[in-house]
Design a protein around this nucleic acid. Sequence first.
DNA 1: GTTAGCACTCAAAACAAGGGAGTGCTAATA
DNA 2: TATTAGCACTCCCTTGTTTTGAGTGCTAAC
Lengths: 348, 348
Amino acid sequence: MKDTALSERKLIILKAIIQNYLETGEPVGSRTLSKYTELNLSSATIRNEMADLEDLGYIFQPHTSAGRIPSDKGYRLYVDMLMEDKEEEITKRENAMLEKADKVEKVLQQAAKVLASNTNYATLVSAPVNSRNTLKFIQLSQVDSEQIVAVIVLGGNVIKNKIIEVGETLSNETLLKLNMLLNTTLNGMPIDQITLGLIARLKEQAGIHSEVVGHVLDAVAEIIHVEDDMKIYTSGATNIFKYPELSDKQSAQEIISAFEEKQQLEELVTETLASESGNGIQVYIGDETPVKTMKDCSVVTATYELGEGMKGTIGIIGPKRMDYEHVMKTLKTLQGELDAIYNKNPKE
Amino acid sequence: MKDTALSERKLIILKAIIQNYLETGEPVGSRTLSKYTELNLSSATIRNEMADLEDLGYIFQPHTSAGRIPSDKGYRLYVDMLMEDKEEEITKRENAMLEKADKVEKVLQQAAKVLASNTNYATLVSAPVNSRNTLKFIQLSQVDSEQIVAVIVLGGNVIKNKIIEVGETLSNETLLKLNMLLNTTLNGMPIDQITLGLIARLKEQAGIHSEVVGHVLDAVAEIIHVEDDMKIYTSGATNIFKYPELSDKQSAQEIISAFEEKQQLEELVTETLASESGNGIQVYIGDETPVKTMKDCSVVTATYELGEGMKGTIGIIGPKRMDYEHVMKTLKTLQGELDAIYNKNPKE
DNA sequence: GTTAGCACTCAAAACAAGGGAGTGCTAATA
DNA sequence: TATTAGCACTCCCTTGTTTTGAGTGCTAAC
């Protein structure tokens, strides 16, 4: 029995085992399979084949005298080769909700929700990260005698603001001048090109107000700091209660905590964005996930793009026996929708 | 046995039962209580008293031949009369973290976290609602040939912004003029005083740019819309797994969903803000809570204030057998801290 | 190579028995 | 009269035993 290639029949059996297990969640035995119309084999024959498949590590028994369950390796083979693309229509209705929402946050939160209700798994949507982004516009305004507010507009119309305490009261002209200075120098500039040298030069030009400029640039720096900025929207975390294998106290606690804290999800997102595959869809099975608390889950992620190389992630987290076909199809659709929404937006 | 007043001894026994149950979570029996030093009574006597207390509805047995458990009515009596204020020091260390955070959202998220780690219950912090708030400052800025951004600063330095599409390109002077117009009229104005008449007047004064002004005021309206604006920060939802009586699948699912969706928590917050009690601390036991999914929990909330009558809520949600004394004390402290933080902020 | 048959394994369900915590009641006691 | 000791009773929980049934591996026959 060579490890390199499985016989046709073994593949069919493996596929049958997995599909059956995806549906029922119960270990599947030889008798069940022999009743499977496609292959007219007795249970005994199937047993032999299953023994082989077990030796090769594609399936295993939870205990002696139980049926077989796919191993991570088995799932992997299935996802890579055995699975056929389901060409189903996913519910367009709900997606209509996406169109309506206007603010970015709302759209993404909606997206997570739609995804969750379409799949019955836990979902996550990360906002586009604005590294490689450009600074579009800065505006300083007096708010109080000793406070100014800096409004910073980034490419993609992401707007940020920060209150800055200034010791002195700035005159209107001064503010106007500073605004001019900042905008003529920085407008349209990719934020990774704002160097220390540039900052020094700006401060110099600001003269006695160099301190204010310093504060403003600090604010910019703070705003674009990726980690700090990564917003993650989630939905349907409680869906995991639908899958007994994940809903014992221990697991449920851990997984839901991950969704609550979001810290760990960030890792997942960065990992996904870093290692991109062909169509942008990635499947992590069990131990393959970057996040240890999800070692008993499968995670499927997709990347969507929003002009300018700004990228975000959508993903779903569920049991290993998840409906990969449906999930991948749904992700692909949503990915498309998001792309569309952002590209039809007033061009950048 | 009159219902109006319980004998001194019954009160002591009831208190003992409750305190014991808070600690252990197990039904408490007569023998356990008779060993209680304070009251030198035999288990038989105690049994008689317990039978009375049960008749009166303060305690009950989960099943025959089990110890007694406090009923909602029992808890209520305890909270109202029997409980003594614990004068413990709560950990000041963690509160230091509160000081550091600057942005409102960060502070509140932190607050929720601190609360959760101090109590081991699920917690919630609602951002101050800005009805009764004033508009401090408006700034329109050109961002693109056909887009302007409106930055709106509210009292308490809450900053909002919104992109507005304008059909035409506005000149610098026009913008300046509009800014002048808006600010001279609206600055410092309580937002509930921005009436239709005022809006009409403004539009008239804006002349050919009345449309833009309309958009801006729409944006203001949208921003101050209370429901839409209510942000709720939560933490420690998974703490409920620590309490077996709440962590069966059904309950856990429901409670955590409530925390994820936040919808239901909003109801809780509005209810709390509406019916305010003396020191602003409220205790909902079991069915008393406005949120049906929490009928097996107790909810304790407090209101904090931030100048100008802007109010927010902090609250904790846990099992009925929660440590009310500790919780109320902690809430009171945090309430104070928040008040302090916001009142030491540059005066409004 | 396939299959029928059989002995074997093991988890889960069903059942039985015992222990223990707790109660209510009654009768004795202070 | 209030308290307590004593006792019978209830019911949950734990433990151990048995039964059932699904499933396997192996061997021998086809």
